[in-house]
Design a protein around this nucleic acid. Structure first.
Lengths: 233, 233
DNA sequence: CGCCAGTTTGACCAAGATCAACGCAAGTGG
DNA sequence: CCACTTGCGTTGATCTTGGTCAAACTGGCG
């Protein structure tokens, strides 16, 4: 069984709101807070280094400056679930539980800003407009979460991967060339698939001329039409 | 951006707070608002009647008085996804999109209170404590959403059904006898399974002496230990 | 009674998981 | 500078879970 308390974010930004994104119960677009408080600390982490672990205390939240962060949970039997990837500008770690229910790790080299939670709350309490903004962001996150549940519950492997690619293309850059910082394993755990299935689907797209894969971590879009078709729903 | 200190009782976990729950970007425990505003309208709906449809405008939100409401989305090819079930006390329909992304239907006979959204927003803006409460509720909802994604992405059919039953037992919290208002089809679409699989798993649990099924819509728990074991993770 | 909608069960099938090689590029140490 | 390792990624061969199709059952209701 899982606990009802599990927490947190999702993936994100749609086209009209690509850069701000919440993790683990959180919300982006908090630049106002960041600006208001000069108390953030800049930290850097190496590839695969842990930013916080399941069970850690939740006195801080974070904003990604550069790099990619992975929010995940490891089950006892080895199954892993990746709640979301956070890119530059995204916030994460804003849980209201006492302990972290997920862990956060650096996918590659990462720089983040760490901010105290208590002070931030007060700022929000004193600023209804900011509170509303936060509320709206959380609602969008919730809506996105539902989109992801639909994906996990009802989509085929090919639809999931296609959806993921489109999401990444929209989130990262508008160009044809996409740089995927995360491993195939990360993608699999994010989409509820195995690494082999992710590979096979990508190979299929490659075979069909939808994408090319110059190297394992970059993808070039050849036929957006077809990719959107594959993403279906 | 929120306080950890006083989250002690009032918005706790599922067990001690079974009746409040959010739907597709919404939030419960807004009794304060309900009390503040006397402008709610009481409405009733018959079994399977639509409360609102995908594409409707979002000027109102709702609170369930009695019965069960189903929040769902139908895909073009017939696949259906049920985002959540709302019971007495739960709120739903608090989206911040212009149009409804999901539809809401009465599972059986349902009575709801309909409330205007605009006025509610103002009340929240003027009441930081209420805003914070709402924020925390949304965070818990987001957390629950992630629990559900873990379920949809990584759990087996048996684990999903077991988790669902435990959730229902805790929510409706009659210790032994559970009345399931929704159909097997609803359960299947909620868990990302087919109706046949749900039936088979239930039959399996019955065979193993974990539950008895006096009739299709009620379930009696015989071995909670075993059910929790089956829910695993 | 018999119909109807929902439920249950069985037989079969397929999408994706699992298991197992193999490839390939980036270190690393002699 | 070149074996050798190491960590991913890719591909192929099977196996399993859960989906699909079909038929039988059940309870409520005209």
């Amino acid at each position: 069984m899982y606990r009802q308390v599990d927490n947190n974010g999702y993936l994100g930004g749609r086209a009209e709101f690509p850069a701000t994104n919440i993790a683990v119960a959180q919300s982006g677009q908090l630049d106002a807070i960041v600006a208001l408080e000069r108390i953030g600390t800049r930290l850097t982490f190496a590839r695969n280094q842990e930013i916080y672990a399941e069970g850690d205390s939740t006195g801080c939240w974070y904003k990604v400056i550069s790099g990619t962060v992975r929010i995940s949970k490891l089950l006892a039997d080895g199954r892993r679930y990746i709640a979301e990837f956070c890119f530059a500008g995204d916030c994460f770690g804003l849980d209201n539980t006492r302990e972290r229910l997920f862990s956060a790790e650096a996918v590659g080299e990462v720089a983040v800003m760490r901010l105290p939670r208590h002070a931030s709350e007060q700022v929000i309490d004193q600023n209804p407009a900011l509170a509303r903004l936060l509320r709206e962001t959380m609602m969008r996150d919730l809506a996105n979460a539902h989109g992801r549940m639909l994906l996990l519950g009802r989509m085929t492997a090919a639809e999931r991967v296609a959806t993921f690619l489109i999401e990444m293309f929209e989130r990262c850059d508008r160009t044809k060339r996409l740089d995927l910082p995360m491993s195939r394993n990360d993608i699999a755990d994010y989409l509820g698939l195995t690494i082999e299935t992710v590979c096979r689907v990508l190979s299929g797209f490659k075979r069909d001329g939808i994408i090319t894969v110059p190297n394992a971590h970059s993808i070039e879009l050849r036929d957006r039409e077809a990719l959107e078709m594959a993403a279906e729903a």
